[in-house]
Design a binder for these strands. Structure first.
Lengths: 190, 190
DNA sequence: CGGATCGTTGATCAACTTCAACGGTCGTGG
DNA sequence: CCACGACCGTTGAAGTTGATCAACGATCCG
């Protein structure tokens, strides 16, 4: 039984079985509990996370002090501030655990070293980012197109099980509106 | 004097000078004139474009028949429907020239062959997508955070020269509001 | 010169926010 | 095991933002 990360990599590229342990050795396993911060706004961001089990989110505080959630990451997703991470720049985002979670963490320099040592992983990450970028194009489409109300229905229809997993105010924060309005929408539909 | 694509690749990875011509040979040079479509919604998307000179955009028609522009690409940017392109799937997007433009085009299968033949390009595209994904995180942040009016000011302050380059209704379409409202904002500021 | 395309203006209207207040529930310490 | 407090969700009133519609200039290109 391979590690979930290896299983995931194997779906996209083929790596030598002998290399698996060496690849995993670049990562630090991390346990975080609910509400714990991994990366904080205003600090350098030099870590990329892979979610083995659980759920984390990326958000920032807008000028009114309201948390805006931009992304969730669940099992088999990668998350960091991808703008800041490559140069270890200061991030405006905070990454926080939504549930108690098991993660793998890798720092900028270690990722570079790992990629040098295992070139097939360049391809793996190319495919991961390509897919992620494609998904963000689609998400952008919904943001333009749908009213807040439509965004809500689209979300709960497409991710009914995930909707159960997170508190309502986080969903509101992700969809970009107020918990009060979400409350109204729930009443409307039921 | 190298081709603009080679110059761009060289900024991120080092390729053998002897390979440059071979790499370029995977691409078709294309000339498009203003308003010409490259990819159309409802058709398979199997081409990735690199802008040598000019400007193209990606948009879709929403259910009311209004064009929503999601992205512009100018010199040295790559553009396609990144969700559909890898599997040559049907796209919901149209890619159209904003100005008369010179492009390089490459199809899914050719890109795969090229990447097999020149592994450093895996790294190049990994970096390109990583950066593009990072940029889309930042764009998403603005979409959540700013009012339409703030989006407008943010855009013209950051891209004054580009604002001159495109008609007003395209800017409105990109920022996600009506040309009428844009008109009102212009009046307000001046 | 003529027609299409683009930008402007103003009136009306809907979607969503803001603010304030209240009720329920969960978990932690006594 | 109970009680308290913090946190979360709900409700309703009033206020904004930005859309819609219709009509009218301006400009550009053939």
């Amino acid at each position: 039984m391979s590690h979930p990360l290896i299983v995931h990599i194997d779906k996209l590229v083929s790596v030598n079985v002998d290399d698996e342990a060496a690849i995993l050795s670049f990562f630090r396993p991390i346990q975080v509990s609910k509400k714990q911060n991994l990366i904080e706004a205003g600090h350098p961001c030099s870590t990329l996370y892979f979610v083995v089990k659980g759920c984390i989110r990326l958000f920032y505080l807008n000028e009114k002090g309201v948390e805006q959630t931009l992304q969730f990451a669940i099992e088999n997703w990668w998350l960091t501030d991808f703008m800041a991470f490559p140069q270890q720049g200061i991030t405006e985002f905070t990454i926080q655990a939504v549930e108690n979670s098991q993660l793998l963490a890798i720092d900028t320099a270690d990722q570079e070293r790992m990629l040098d040592q295992f070139p097939p992983l360049e391809r793996y990450f190319r495919l991961i980012y390509q897919r992620a970028y494609g998904a963000s194009q689609v998400k952008m489409k919904y943001q333009y197109d749908y009213s807040r109300e439509q965004l809500y229905h689209h979300f709960i229809d497409n991710f009914p099980q995930f909707t159960q997993r997170i508190p309502q105010y986080l969903l509101a924060s992700y969809l970009g509106f107020t918990p009060e309005y979400l409350s109204e929408l729930r009443k409307k539909r039921s």
